[in-house]
Design a protein around this nucleic acid. Sequence first.
DNA 1: CTCCGTCGTTGACACGTGCAAGTAGATCGC
DNA 2: GCGATCTACTTGCACGTGTCAACGACGGAG
Lengths: 323, 323
Amino acid sequence: MSGRVTSTDVAREAGLSRATVSYVLNDDPRQTIPEATRQRVLAAAERLGYRPYGPARLLRGARSTLVLMLTPGLQRATDFVAAGIVTQLGMALREHGLHLVWQLGTEDDRSAAMDLAPAVVLSSAGEGEPAFAELTQQFSVPVLPAFPGLPGFLGGAAVTQVDHLLERGRRVLAYAAPPRADLEPTSEIRWQAIVTEARRLGLAHPVRLTLSANRGEATAQLRALLAEHPEVDGLCAYNDEVAFTVLAAAHDAGIDVPGRIAVIGVDNHPFGYLAVPALSTIESDVTEFVTAFAKSVAQVARGEEGRDVLLPSSARAVARASS
Amino acid sequence: MSGRVTSTDVAREAGLSRATVSYVLNDDPRQTIPEATRQRVLAAAERLGYRPYGPARLLRGARSTLVLMLTPGLQRATDFVAAGIVTQLGMALREHGLHLVWQLGTEDDRSAAMDLAPAVVLSSAGEGEPAFAELTQQFSVPVLPAFPGLPGFLGGAAVTQVDHLLERGRRVLAYAAPPRADLEPTSEIRWQAIVTEARRLGLAHPVRLTLSANRGEATAQLRALLAEHPEVDGLCAYNDEVAFTVLAAAHDAGIDVPGRIAVIGVDNHPFGYLAVPALSTIESDVTEFVTAFAKSVAQVARGEEGRDVLLPSSARAVARASS
DNA sequence: CTCCGTCGTTGACACGTGCAAGTAGATCGC
DNA sequence: GCGATCTACTTGCACGTGTCAACGACGGAG
């Protein structure tokens, strides 16, 4: 590396020592520096385009400003919820002087974070999972769950779905699960929450259906479901994508929504507003979570014990034409 | 930092010098090391859980394995195209020994990359934009456009839209632009490509419409458009989100799609398959771009001159019920 | 004039690593 | 038998930074 401008260069340019330069640029309050030399250093630094070299200051013992977020890839369109949280979190952390960087892909790639030496690592793996403990060991850095309290968050949305359909006068519910096997754990949480809430409200035990991703098959499945369970009049979908599948199937089967059956999704995907009929859904306001979580992460980054923050377990129904 | 295990610790544990430890762990081919000591070092390192400290090796002059991607936040659901490219690129770069990290948000935050000292920076800003030159100056690191040849990419999709509608027997086209002002530059590229292709094919000059995000307003707009231009029988949407708006408006207005007007979007959003009617769209295969681009980035990271790689300007029509 | 405190500045060290150069001891060539 | 080569290591420097302790100058107090 020949091209790097070091603080030694600045010192030479300003005709001062490197120490003085360092004191000026970090404006160390314990040092008294006359305005004249201050300006001299600043001018020299500006002239040379000096930028302190991160690795060197880290080596010296400075705390990193980096927060590393580890998640699997963004394959599905519905991952936009997580993407939104990450985006917001990045902005919130910036106000604490921290910088969020995001690494997609398999989490077992340990060498990744070596070069960047983050202050904190956020992992999408839940706190209980084995991958989590492994990470803590791998980095010599605190590891936090990226989405703490996720089960409550997921369950809360499902509960709100049931409450909303009850308000709309529905009494016998179905649950549409996604076809992807890797979503099974989350789907199970939603399903259990729906079952529990239905029981609490004195409703009939809900019917569960794993909906095909194929439109024709989904149509047949929906027809069969309503034939077999004619009393079903409301449907909670795993998320808006599954809800879209239900709407498409209902349209193709000539089933009236919400006349014959009411449908509600989760996520408040922007396309839901444009569905036929417009899709009712559940929206979760995560802004207060994000700000609280950012503060907690900042504490951990400073070496303190971070306060526990959980994703909100309450959610809001967005009522549209499909329910 | 008390807790860090250094190579000195490993050396002491193995009863050898630090240099030997370094040679073993980096298996330096210029050194001959007997298997016995080799194992001794490896065992000691394993026992202590030693992980070399990235900043220190960077300081020593090692090349960083990090590639920093800078883009604005992922707000809109349609950003999933970019998200997909980023995900794929991350995997491709890993095969070159590089690690992609992604920072969302405003690009003017220069201090961000300081701590992580990347080998290359990828900016979503186009090569021509002023922000681009600024970045190159700010980092002392090569900056590449994250999506090179974006105009051709965008135009190619639009051209394919026109060709497809012509194949379907449509002769007079409309173009539906998005309401967001920040998309205007991209939208203009699409519009120009459509105009040019229509002229080349001897079609009438297309009609341009900036569609409201409000469903009711969009319905009125679409009605007015078809009343004013009764000869219009095909519509190219800016992307699938706008196309969804068109489909919703057509449904609400009682306009038959594709009977009265054929509609085609861009992006191949997964929800398009579930639209009413199923949305025709344009799909671009970026895998060969991604692999070629990853190779180019790896060259630049090694200090060589990277070969120019462009996003594909050709695209494929996905024909569904809406056209 | 001497002593001492303050101000402004500097030399020197440490952080953890990679690698060039050097060094004992063993082995080889003649 | 003795220098030359080779093996298996070690000593030591450099990377760029933050900061402690020291140091000269200077001015005021006695």
